[in-house]
Design a protein around this nucleic acid. Structure first.
Lengths: 345, 345
DNA sequence: TTGTAGGCGTTATCAT
DNA sequence: ATGATAACGCCTACAA
């Protein structure tokens, strides 16, 4: 078993030259004799020499590794975002150190810490639902590790961010529903303390007003994302004197649960009641009753943007002043269900 | 901007002691005077000293980073597997370098190479569909980087593997269907050149025979996982003189597409025809027509097992002979649709 | 054209 | 109880 790997020093000894000659020959330094260069490169190939990246990283103080933290990859939104990140990473020769926070602020802190310890060159993160402390991020500043937040971004302004504006997305959606003739529009929103819920609710109210409809808070229900509370929300919505003719779900998963409930109550999905949603995830291409329309949030694009920003931050670390903060808004679009291939597995 | 990070040397100078003293004080070496130790640790905290992991990895020749490569995280099977891997990784203080092959052997080779260059301590991989070359893996051997394959494992035996035996799973499934009274059982299989398809087909045939039914190859159709071919397969199955009363789909995604087709042909899912499948992914908890039953393949457990094996390989590198290959079979179970909470997003 | 030497940050060995 | 020094593998400024 080849315990000791070939090094420059070894080759130097075998070829009776100095290590610097070997080093230079390998990097095709111009003023190394052709003959020497050839000899070195030949030997290198023979013994399968490869520079020890750890030594280089150590010397160069960079590792070409960037950290990526998301709440859960099981959510297609995030797996798509990661693919977006990866596509650029591979191209630019970066590698991804990956972790999930599972929406637990404590765990988030832990994984941020471990990435700091690994000295990633930069970090891309989508915050956990309830993150309120940011001290673990401040520690990164001290090490000059730049951070780009995406999708679930912090509210303070001195941070680099890439996100999607669902406020206007919601307004567009209500406009679309109005044009299709829907007048009683319900909303199954998330917990009211979440920024994402507030954003949707604001868009909902302003959207309704904009169409000169009456805002009726009876049409707004909440879910904590459990199937149970989603069903309860549906139950309340359906058992009103004037039930909604269209229902906006917080996201495609809530949509699916809502549809399940509707079916078991003998409602003809998208005929008796129109269902629309946010995210437009690939999975909706497979389900029996996809939302009529969904607000595309471009997770892949958000991911790509985020890493592009991050790489430029890494590469211009010296030049950039602390006060230049990048904030990119990806504009949401209304999209019909995507056509997709089944994953293989 | 704090360009130069605090080092041991700096502290040594400031405290007028040697670097070794500082190093030892920090690691609570027993024979360092209490006073010195306190002083050092106090200063360290003050200036926010943290050991430079890169320097240590360089010295120690380990990085506590393991590589993980899967075809696509969009597939819940793999995102669950990664969560299984991560759960153990966090616990044992390993970090995950992550990449997707997107079922492209060339890309797989590329990402394996980049992980080799990063000198991961070990690699966990689920092969791309069509991987036939293994030279990029052999290069890892030379660097003593152990590899554990999971789920999509190679056929040769000199490799560490964790996988699920779908042959017996399929037999169990047919037994279950038979007990429920189904006699004409159809199969929408994957492309016949895939090992995963062969395994299912073999189980299908043996399972049918075991129930003393007649094997009818008219009941076996293929899909390349596109919605189109799945629909074509369904079309053929449904338009026979004696259409099947139960249909086994290659996986939960194919199942969803098959159900979509069935619905649009006015078939009452799971009443006119029973639908069953493989994988039992969390997503089936949200869809309108989940499979009656699904073969649980325990992706989370497979992932955890894989990393446990890998870590033991890493830590016992010296002791283990090349001929000791671990091969773990996770036994599949029949499971009804899981009850899950919506992901947040 | 090639060699020498120093340094990156840490730890371990051997002195003192 | 503490210090000096070497070593890990590579690169590069300077010397020859």
């Amino acid at each position: 078993m080849n315990q000791t790997l070939p090094t420059i020093k070894e080759m130097a000894i075998r070829l009776k030259v100095s290590t610097s000659t070997v080093s230079r020959a390998l990097s095709n330094h111009p003023r190394i004799g052709l003959k020497t260069r050839m000899e070195v490169q030949k030997l290198a190939k023979e013994i399968g020499y490869e520079a020890n990246a750890k030594a280089i990283f150590f010397k160069e103080k960079r590792s070409n590794i960037i950290g990526v933290i998301v709440p859960q990859i099981r959510e297609e939104f995030f797996s798509e975002a990661i693919s977006g990140i990866e596509s650029i990473a591979v191209e630019k020769d970066y590698t991804i150190l990956f972790a999930q926070s599972f929406d637990d602020p404590e765990r988030e802190e832990k994984v941020v810490d471990s990435m700091r310890k690994q000295r990633v060159d930069g970090l891309i993160i989508s915050l956990s639902k309830q993150t309120t402390k940011f001290s673990h991020f401040h520690k990164l500043d001290k090490l000059n590790i730049p951070v780009v937040y995406f999708d679930r971004v912090p509210s303070f302004s001195n941070a680099h961010k890439v996100y999607c504006d669902l406020y206007t997305g919601t307004i567009k959606m209500i406009q679309w529903l109005f044009k299709k003739g829907y007048r009683r529009i319900g909303l199954i929103n998330g917990p009211s303390n979440l920024a994402a819920s507030k954003e949707r609710l604001k868009g909902y109210i302003d959207g309704i007003v904009k169409q000169h409809l009456k805002v009726d808070m009876q049409l707004v229900e909440e879910t904590d994302f459990s199937k149970e509370t989603t069903c309860r929300a549906m139950h309340k919505l359906l058992n009103q004197k004037h039930p909604p003719t269209a229902i906006i779900s917080f996201n495609d998963y809530v949509h699916m649960d809502a549809v399940q409930f509707a079916i078991s109550n003998n409602i003809k999905v998208n005929r008796d009641i129109a269902f629309v949603s946010y995210a437009n995830l690939p999975i909706t291409g497979h389900i029996a009753y996809p939302p009529l329309i969904s607000i595309e949030q471009y997770p892949f694009a958000q991911g790509s943007k985020a890493i592009e920003v991050l790489i430029s931050l890494i590469q211009n670390q010296a030049q950039i002043a602390d006060t230049d903060f990048v904030s990119i808004e990806v504009s949401p679009d209304l999209k019909e269900t995507p056509v997709v291939s089944s994953p293989y597995y």
